[in-house]
Amino acid sequence: MIQARGLSKRFQDKKRGEIRAVDNVSFTCQPGKIYGLLGANGAGKTTTLRMLATILEPTDGTALVCGHDIVEQPEKVRACVGFLSTATALYPRLTARELVEYFGRLNGLDEATLKKRVDDIFNRLDMNGFRDRRCDKLSTGMKQKTSIARTLVHDPPVMIFDEPTLGLDVITARTITAFIRECRDRGKTVIFSTHVMSEVEKLCDTIGIIHTGKLLAEGTLAQFRDQHNEQDFEEIFVKVIAPRYVPAETD
């Protein structure tokens, strides 16, 4: 489970002064559910997810991930989180197997468990054909599978996806969305950010709309449709953010 409580992140910029990238954001993600964080570019999605993954430290507020405080116990939090984004690249000079094993060892797995886990994941994701190929020689789809294997190797109960399909072709993107669903079906807590409305409609159990660092609205797809008397989620999204809309800069 993820419980974000008043999460805030401010950055200092020489030209623009203080920037409130995330401003007092609170939400809860339940196990076996997918929470979609929806927002335009620069809304604060990536910063929020990076704080949950303890890559960034919140300026104010905190969050509990699997019962661990992200500020107090960042290493314990990371041990129970699988984090995947288009920015999390692979080590080009390691093979797919070496890379997954490296992250397994960093997560404290013993050699016997690691071998079993790696074999299991490579079979499940049909990766045996390229397991000993260097990551810089892999196709985009193979790289995505390797990234997925990396996030799964320690079998984390919480999965965080930051715009995981950004820039991917339809086939590769479908691999990712199928994987996100599978995580939910296995009872994991899943949070993912996107600005693609169709993904939200297809995947999310709960949706949070974030804009200029603030969580403006939260609910299920049905609740949003009822509340705004509108079926097209893109229209709903625009209605929610319209009062506060100013073209934002990227995260």
Binding site: I55, E75, R78, T88, A89, L90, F103, L106, N107
Partner: peptide, 14 residues
């Protein structure tokens, strides 16, 4: 530059 910094920072290693 290669984008692997975020990958390693998301692992439990201090």
């Amino acid at each position: 530059e290669r984008g692997t910094m975020e990958t390693i920072l998301s692992s439990p290693i201090s």
